[in-house]
Design a protein around this nucleic acid. Structure first.
Lengths: 408, 408
DNA sequence: GGTGTTTGTCAGGGCTCTCAACAAATTAGT
DNA sequence: ACTAATTTGTTGAGAGCCCTGACAAACACC
């Protein structure tokens, strides 16, 4: 099982009556969750009419969902309509919750969301994690996680799943292993080996993937197929296709940083020439902006500051990066035909200066199909995306399969 | 409903017991179909053990499948094993069949396959279809189709679905419309408007997509995620992701021909610069090979002939095309991480001269992940792919949902 | 020929949905 | 205030589907 993949029908394998029940529980829960909280809340009869089940079936399903703590029956509402008023249903804001954890290069984070998807608690501590032993870092994360679990209990929440966002490669196969995280100096770290409590070991997932999923899950009107570009030290893209994260055959999909944008361009560390990273990577932009020997501190913040001040070399460097990124994204649009493109990670902070040139390049080169400049937009969540995505992963799993919750 | 998409669980919508039955019918049928015909045929008990249903359930499902004509009970086999021998099950080679039709620029085609996926009849007639009125061409196709239906009846086959492969754009939405087919001169052609018999109107689908699906369905050990490049007049790619055709948000996915391989290269008719088609398109290769004013006849055959004869400008043109194609495919590999790349259409006929340079370019540029040169291979089906894919589409739909067949 | 093994089928039971009927709770009308 | 109409949620009967357990049938082995 992989983060972000729905657990339904493994495409082969027989269907059982439990599967049917599972899906119908998910459908009913999804109907309540997908309903605008501003509108009049849904009753059992409303749900039945909306999803196409009978009132009797919905009643039974709702009872089970209430028993599992996924739904609550709110107070009766003065509907104003004729007939017996329905009993308002709402996704529970107590009970099940998802815990997201994050290891960044310079910080640790934690986030707690309830089943409605609402964040209920955030924690962030600054830590220089690069090069430290994985066990040491994980011990601190575990302490943070324990504090959050305590806070969850105080809020009446029960943590049902734990996902850890890491800036590294997490293989497709389960096992809780971070294959490598260059910016942390990790290689082949098994989370379970360093976690104090075997019952609360989190599942690792790549932070860029989680950021993309958060962007998708958090959108009011979600775009089902989009490319989420995320630049930290490298440049990666997460592909969300039909609402699901696409990892590629071996988990390497979305390697945007090494697309050949100028085939005869400068050599890249990867061995090829003219890769996108040579134009739009952090090191390349800093070099071009004359900031290669910047002091300590956040390089991205420095770039944003200089660009905001109108520093010509910085502006030129960002323009050059934007045009190269536009070239790479042209290839992505031609191949994948996404509904949208999202600039996340460091690019979100630099969007003001990147967007014009990226959009111009796309407009000039994406000509054989309709393409709206607004389809490219900066991330709405910015740097909080991965952590939120980690927490929401558990929520979305439960929404897709409410039987994951213990029966009441 | 779209060609090549499984009809199962529309992801939302409640599950019914019919859905469960449908899936289990498909699972049982799939187990029989997926079994090597060389090995001892499967019995009901074998199927039960393999798919995880009980013998009683499989018995009921098999009975229904036999009733619908999807399975047959073969003669008893001398198994040589102890115990009561099982009754051999086989996918029926009578009854349900799929009819594939094809309109090419210079020919019409038809193909009949039985439920095992075996071709049972082929027809091909040479016709210059470019520029002729759509109604005239479709009338000839309909005549061809009628002849095939008669042949099907003679073979004891019943045509359960009709798909028409066209060299053009078919929108995602159903409706039987060919939005445009530049090489035929078609625009907004509704098949139903020109078909003599309303009961046998075929469903149109892009030939490159069908070629890719045929490649997938026909493979012994199918690669689940691959890119099928197909060059005719333009250069297109069909993306098969997790065994399903991926069309993109608006049906424009796989537009490989306009990937910017040399951003400052020659201008393209699309308005951009340095598109792949300027290097690897038919017109560009012919021009580079000094064959721009070739006489009548198949330009691809001409290129193959000259290349086979060692004609230096042709070899240079193909090498240049191959390197450009390798660049574009590098982007595809980086983004999608496919298990394989297939060269189809005209490229299949030119594979001998294209493969080396494409592979070299990929080897030099795909460095941040494992990449085997053999993952790029020419199409096994070549020019027959689209027609076979059209015929197989119906078969795969029935395999995915045997209740499409009339009950016996 | 008897025994053991495997196959296919049947009857009973459980789960889940649908259908039809009904009590409950509210609005509209007089 | 009281009745009629309307809508909701629940209940019981019924159908569909799979599972369990049992059993006859058909074969190999001794």
């Amino acid at each position: 099982m992989t983060v972000g993949m729905a657990s339904r029908s493994a495409s082969s394998g027989p269907a059982s009556q439990q599967d049917m029940r599972r899906q119908n529980l998910a459908v009913v829960l999804g109907a309540v969750a997908g309903h605008s909280p501003l509108a009049r809340p849904l009753s059992r009869a409303d749900v039945a009419g909306r999803v196409g089940l009978t009132r009797a079936a919905v009643s039974s399903l709702v009872d089970e969902l209430i028993g599992r703590g996924a739904l609550t029956e709110a107070a009766a509402t003065a509907s104003g309509r004729v007939g017996r008023p329905g009993r308002a249903l709402a996704v529970s804001d107590e009970g099940p919750a998802g815990l997201g954890l994050e290891i960044g290069v310079t910080h640790l984070g934690a986030c707690l969301v309830d089943l409605r998807g609402e964040p209920r608690a955030w924690r962030r501590v600054e830590r220089e994690n690069a090069g430290r032993p994985a066990g040491e870092v994980l011990a601190e994360v575990a302490a943070l996680a324990a504090a959050m679990e305590a806070e969850a209990a105080a809020l009446g929440l029960r943590v049902e799943g734990r996902i850890l966002a890491v800036p590294g490669v997490v293989p497709n196969e389960p096992g809780g292993v971070v294959e490598r995280a260059p910016n942390l100096g990790w290689r082949g770290v098994r989370l379970a080996d360093h976690w104090p409590d075997a019952d609360t070991v989190p599942e690792p997932e790549n932070e860029a993937n989680l950021g993309a999923l958060a962007e998708y899950w958090n959108a009011g009107q979600p775009v089902e197929t989009f490319v989420h570009v995320s630049a930290e030290t490298g440049i990666g893209a997460a592909l969300v296709i039909d609402g699901r994260l696409f990892r590629g055959a071996r988990g390497f999909a979305g390697e945007l940083g090494h697309l050949p944008v100028h085939p005869d361009g400068p050599g890249c560390a990867c061995g090829a020439r003219g890769c996108l990273e040579q134009y739009a990577g952090e090191a390349a932009v800093l070099r071009e902006a004359g900031l290669a020997e910047h002091g300590p501190g956040d390089a991205v913040a420095l770039l944003a500051e200089r660009a905001g001040a109108g520093h010509p070399p910085t502006l030129a460097a960002l323009d050059r990066a934007g045009r190269a990124l536009g070239l790479a994204l042209t290839s992505a649009v031609d191949l994948i035909d996404p509904d949208g493109l999202v600039l996340g990670g460091a690019y979100a902070d630099l969007a003001d200066w990147l967007l014009p040139s990226v959009r111009a390049e796309l407009a000039a080169r994406v000509t054989v199909r309709p393409w709206a400049p607004e389809a490219l937009r900066p991330s709405a969540l910015g740097r909080r995306g991965p952590l939120l995505g980690a927490a929401l992963t558990t929520v979305r799993r439960i929404m897709a399969d409410p039987t994951l919750l213990p029966a009441g």
